[in-house]
Design a protein around this nucleic acid. Structure first.
Lengths: 238, 238
DNA sequence: GTGCGCCAACTTGCATGCAAGATGGCCTTC
DNA sequence: GAAGGCCATCTTGCATGCAAGTTGGCGCAC
């Protein structure tokens, strides 16, 4: 009955592209609901209720919730429902440490690329930064936030390390609500443009130590600007 | 029917300690099986078969497999079984980047601790390093590996960042087999002791830049020693 | 002998049933 | 009136049934 399949037998051709399953649907829907605060932090829902709302049975919801728990977005309280996780300032401190670590290494890697690839990346990053500068002049906060997000995502993705990309994606998901909130509170958005340009210069010059250091300083400055804001506003949980 | 629980209602006392479920059992058992190569990479098993072997139904196995997939240890091939993931040298390169990033930041944080805490951590790290030196003299590879693992785990855990700890835990799980293999291949185990001592000194002195840089160099040296070994031995997948 | 196609077996996706545990309200008792 | 205990209800944990899709082999045709 239990047929042992040989280890050497490679993956059978088809490049493993799953069509979207109900689990994926539930996962995406729940993540979106959490991001746009349809499910506010602290809210406690039952899988049954979520399943009903999404028009499917409990099983795919349950599996999606497991994945969300791995992502740190919810917690499953045994026999008591699903709790949407809140983010404390302490969590934001942790998150910034991870960002500093990963983006710093990514910048280092980018600065070590061959000339042509390096220039291409620098050029792309410069585009996003100019978009930020324009948005800043126009006082267009949403555009500024979008361009900033693109800059930081490209910074990591272009380093070509899937694991680092995934880590940043997870961390970004976790802090999504906080970012949306703080975008309106911050004052020094202009400084980011200058710092981004410094990062880009270091990458252009192939100075990996400087690239790492400047990303490091950029993110720590942003953190030190943000955390007091959060605490002064009494945002104990986001 | 669908009773909406208030968001403000805090977690009901009990500090959320799940007793081990069948899912946890399956998860632990599978991870162990993968680590000790009972399930070799490339092996393809069915959830039914695993469930039978573990004496439970398919449901908890299925959920455990989902978690293992999140950890990057297996892949679920839709309607074709569970594939134990193999690690290519390219994966090891990615893994080392993550380690360099996270451990580097952790060292930085440790060097920024207050005097007493810093000294305590340095002292603990020194203990592990001395254990490595002894094991190296005795040519006791398993002990060396264990002490080295403790050093690196403490380096991250003592920084007090749960997310960084979790990332390192995941990465460590992924590369477990590779580490076991390469422990026997490496020649320069002695250099690690010297480098560890340099890291500890930087932490003791509160020099966070030096601490970060020395961890950085230590891990990159180890990587550059290891990767050629793997490739020369033709270990395309571990 | 070779190649093609059909089919049977096997696999996961998902729904649902049942059981055990947690919770909150109601009733009883003092 | 207040407090404590019992019970109904709600919740997830897990087993299992059914359906849909994939695979490999067997047999048939040439």
């Amino acid at each position: 009955m239990a047929r042992m399949r040989g280890a050497a037998k490679t993956v059978p051709a088809q490049e493993v592209e799953r069509r979207p399953s109900l689990v994926d649907d539930a996962y995406a829907a729940l993540k979106r609901a959490i991001h746009d605060s349809s499910f506010a932090p602290g809210y406690q829902a039952s899988e049954q209720e979520i399943a009903l709302r999404l028009g499917m049975s409990r099983t795919p919801v349950h599996e999606a919730v497991i994945r969300l728990q791995e992502d740190g977005l919810v917690r499953v309280l045994s026999r008591r429902g699903v709790l949407i996780c809140a983010l404390a300032p302490e969590d934001m401190r942790e998150i910034y440490d991870v960002i500093v670590a990963v983006e710093g290494r990514a910048a280092e890697l980018l600065a070590s690329l061959p000339d042509a690839a390096r220039e291409a990346v620098a050029s792309e990053l410069a585009d996003y930064t100019e978009a930020m500068a324009c948005a800043w002049q126009d006082r267009d906060l949403p555009s500024w936030g979008q361009a900033d997000a693109r800059f930081h995502r490209a910074l990591v993705e272009r380093a070509g390390n899937g694991r680092m990309t995934r880590i940043i994606q997870t961390i970004t998901d976790q802090s999504h609500r906080a970012r949306m909130l703080t975008l309106k509170l911050r004052r020094e958005l202009g400084a980011s443009v200058t710092e981004h340009r410094a990062i880009i210069d270091a990458i252009r010059l192939g100075d990996s130590a400087a690239a790492q250091g400047r990303v490091h300083d950029h993110r720590l400055r942003a953190r030190d600007e943000l955390l007091p804001l959060l605490e002064s506003f009494g945002l104990k949980h986001l």
